[in-house]
Design a protein around this nucleic acid. Structure first.
Lengths: 184, 184
DNA sequence: GATTAAATCGAGGGCACCCTCGACTTCGTT
DNA sequence: AACGAAGTCGAGGGTGCCCTCGATTTAATC
């Protein structure tokens, strides 16, 4: 990940970092449609500076989200490392939704709550692809019902994103009900 | 249901009806936050007239939604008339979500997507109360798992409202998974 | 410390929606 | 048909967010 084309001036690099930190916080707390002016203020920087660094909201999101989405890869790796495929499947889902609960921005992205840049979409696609392997493994082991498809994951994520926002205390309970329905 | 205080002038009554019709359509299609100016235009009436009839958005919603929410009562009555309690339970849920799929405004209200007036909240409360009886009956018959509580319905409705919006074609499939998880 | 390119600032113009209010029109009545 | 009350109209002011751009400041270099 080379720093790109031109090296930034020292103050610019500092401000960029402050912006990224502020945005990570704001997007995580309030979702991907958090007001940019608020982010600029909370970074101690003017709105003009924000736009100097990130010309569009998408560019801003692109600078933050892919890393968070990539966390799904670790989750998937751990899930596949589980000796029991069903256990791997459930722990993957649990981890996924726990991430969503902590980061509303990530939740917005995974649930397609609003239009996303190609870069973020690609990251999501990669995440879902890993998930497909976990699902297939659990199906092959005969523990996950045969008619559950990888494509069912996206609607599930979207539904859970809403449930998590609505009642952050009880989403595990409802997930458990659902998982009981998914057992072969 | 007396017409209230003063009788409306003929043209006013006509406009009121056109506004209600337009709002029913707009709220149903676009949700309870549909722009009021658009509703006025599609009713062939100016925005000022809209506000003359309904001083706030809440008043407008109150004039429309309670009737739609009351449709849940019929659904509940039918469900309780089913000889098989489990069948009653599932047909109630299916009917409820079918209504949500047809009316995004109703869906917004039931899922508490935005702040609601006391009148609408009360209507929702009444609806959920009926649902509680259906749930209890299904539990007593031993077909619904004992640890499913009436309070679990609200989060379920909220999650389904999202799922229905996201993939209106497949919500029944996912509901079926969930119901399998709810069987005793 | 003077030069200059880079970076910052924030007022301001746009947009979409909200809601109000005084001028005008229409209805219903005498 | 003419009067007054009831109803309608829509321009206009308010808000919150978007994004731009010329004036200004600051870091890096000589």
């Amino acid at each position: 990940m080379a720093t790109g084309s031109k090296p930034l001036r020292a103050d610019a690099a500092r401000n960029r970092d402050k912006l990224l930190a502020a945005a990570t916080r704001a997007f995580g707390e309030h979702g991907l449609d958090a007001p940019l002016e608020q982010i600029a203020r909370s970074a101690g920087v003017s709105i003009g500076t924000l736009y100097a660094h990130f010309p569009t909201r998408d560019a801003f999101v692109d600078a933050i989200l892919p890393a968070q989405i990539a966390a799904l890869d670790d989750l998937a790796t751990n899930a596949l490392a589980e000796p029991d495929p069903w256990q791997g499947f459930t722990s993957f889902l649990d981890g996924l939704f726990a991430l969503q609960a902590k980061d509303h921005g990530l939740s917005d992205a995974l649930a397609r709550r609003l239009p996303l840049s190609p870069a973020v979409l690609e990251a999501c696609r990669a995440g879902f692809e890993h998930a497909a392997r976990i699902i297939d493994r659990a199906k092959e082991s005969g523990q996950l019902r045969a008619d559950f498809e990888p494509a069912d994951l996206a609607p599930l994520v979207s539904a859970m994103s809403q449930l998590i926002r609505e009642s952050p205390e009880t989403w595990r309970r409802h997930l458990a009900f659902f998982l009981d329905g998914l057992r072969a």
